[in-house]
Each structure stands twice: as C-alpha cells, then as structure tokens.
C-alpha cells in the first residue's frame, strides 16, 4: 500500500503526455458541441414532445437491452470461461462479430433472421403473429445485438481472472454448480459484470445503425435519440446539437451515479 502511494505521485512524462493528448482527443469533440450549442433557445427546443419521447424511448430500450444482455450474456461468458469445449476459440471470435460488423449490416442481418420473412421471424409471424421490425421490441433486439459483446467480453475477462479455488471451496461445502455460480462466482465477478453492463448500456444508448435498419424510425415507437439526432442533422444542425447534448448529459449523469453506487463498493 505504502509503495503504491509513493509511486502514485509522479507520473512519468512518457505516459503523461500521450495520456493528456488522448483525453483531449476524446473531450474536444464534446467541447465542439458545447461551443456551438444554441444556448438561448435550449429550453424551448428541449420541451418538444418529440425530444422527450425519443429520450424516454432511448432510456427504456437501452435499459431493456442491458437486461437482455445480462440474461444471455453472463451465462455465455461463463460457458466461454469455464466450460472447455471444442471450438471455444471460434465461438469466442463469433461473439465479437457484432463489434466489427458495421451496425447497418448488423441490422440487415437481423432482418434476414428475425424480419417478417426472416429465417426465424417468418415462423414467429406465422405461428404467433409476432413481428419485430418497426416495433419497440425490434429496437431492443437491435441494441441487444450490438451491445452484447461488450458484456460478454467484460464478464469473461472477470471470470478468467477470478480465483477458481473459491468455487472449489464452495463445492466442498456442499454447493452444487448453480449455487456456486450465483452465490460465489457471480458476486466475485460483480465488478466485471457491472462494468460490462455499463458499457453495454452506453453502447445501446448510442446505437443508431442497427436500430434504424432493423426497427425503422417512427416517433414514439422506434425513434430513439440517436435517430432523432441524425434526422435533425438533415434540416436543423442546431437541434441536432441540442439533442446530442441531452443524450450525453443523461448518459454521463446515469453512469456517474452508477459508478458511485456500484464500482466503489468492491
């Protein structure tokens, strides 16, 4: 502890300079938005129903997408980290596909599978009358598709770093695999899960390409903030800046609040 404190004081220039440059690179575009924001008309622009609808929809869908990512992503990460099976490397690579796939292509791919005439979607439509395109559920699916890799990678990393012997200790105490998973493994990797969920939520909140391609754009139903921003950019760049700032402000506030609550406890 003492050593760490002593070392913490003076960062070497070799690290400090690129660190600050990197920070500037990330923050300056934000400054650009702030400088160009039409502050005088900000209030009236924000109170428009369409803005509030889009914001509400964004928050709801991003949160639902995060929940879906947790439900499916955590078990998937566990499989990748704990269950040795043939082709695990391939599966791991496949999991990252949505990361490298341009989101628009991801949206088309989703249409081909879950669309009204998709491989699975066609059957869902015929058997249950369920269709996803042009629905809020479709937005959630698109966001889940794009955001899930962030959760899986983050949780898998945490699982690999976790000390397996705790699980052995739990086993000797009579815990079955499920008990071990939810009472020992999961709490141990909770910081990793939280970090993954936050990344996931942020990615879902900013999702544009897959959403508009798969779910379309209809105010109140599928028009999330990024879609509203994009369309505002067509005619009214000032409004686009306002919307972007709203999205950023909400994201920063939520993430900061979560960070205080979750990240610091462990």
């Amino acid at each position: 502890m003492k050593d760490a404190d002593r070392l913490a004081g003076r960062p070497p220039l070799v690290l400090l300079v690129p660190a600050l440059a990197g920070l500037a690179f990330l923050v300056l575009p934000l400054a650009g938005l702030l400088v160009r924001a039409p502050w005088s008309t900000l209030g009236t622009r924000l109170m428009q129903d369409q803005v509030l609808d889009a914001l509400r929809l964004s928050l709801v869908t991003a949160t639902l997408a995060t929940v879906l990512c947790l439900l499916f992503g955590v078990p998937l990460a566990w499989m990748l980290a704990r269950v040795p099976f043939r082709g695990v490397r391939l599966v791991r690579a496949l999991v990252t596909v949505p990361l490298v796939l341009p989101p628009v292509v991801g949206g088309v791919a989703l249409l081909l599978v879950l669309g009204r005439r998709g491989l699975v979607g066609g059957w869902l439509d015929e058997a249950f009358g369920i269709t996803f395109p042009f629905t809020t559920a479709g937005v959630v699916l698109a966001e889940t598709f794009v955001a899930m890799p962030f959760l899986v990678i983050s949780v898998e990393g945490a699982l690999r770093a976790a000390d397996l012997r705790y699980e052995e200790a739990a086993a000797t105490l009579g815990a079955g695999r499920w008990t071990i998973f939810h009472r020992v493994t999961l709490p141990l990797v909770a910081p990793g899960v939280a970090a993954g969920a936050v990344l996931c939520w942020a990615r879902a909140l900013g999702e544009f390409g897959a959403t508009i391609t798969f779910a379309g754009n209809f105010p109140g139903r599928t028009q999330t903030m990024p879609l509203a921003v994009y369309l505002a950019l067509e005619t009214d760049p000032q409004a686009a800046i306002v919307l972007s700032l709203v999205l950023l402000a909400v994201a920063v506030i939520v993430l900061a609040a979560l960070r205080d609550r979750w990240m610091t406890t462990s």
Binding site: F134, I212, A215, G216, N217, F218, T222, Q223, L227, L231
Partner: peptide, 8 residues
C-alpha cells in the same frame, strides 16, 4: 398514409 417507419 400512416407509415410504419420514416426512414433516414
């Protein structure tokens, strides 16, 4: 016309 989506 009441469209299901207003595309970009």
């Amino acid at each position: 016309v009441e469209p299901v989506s207003r595309e970009k």
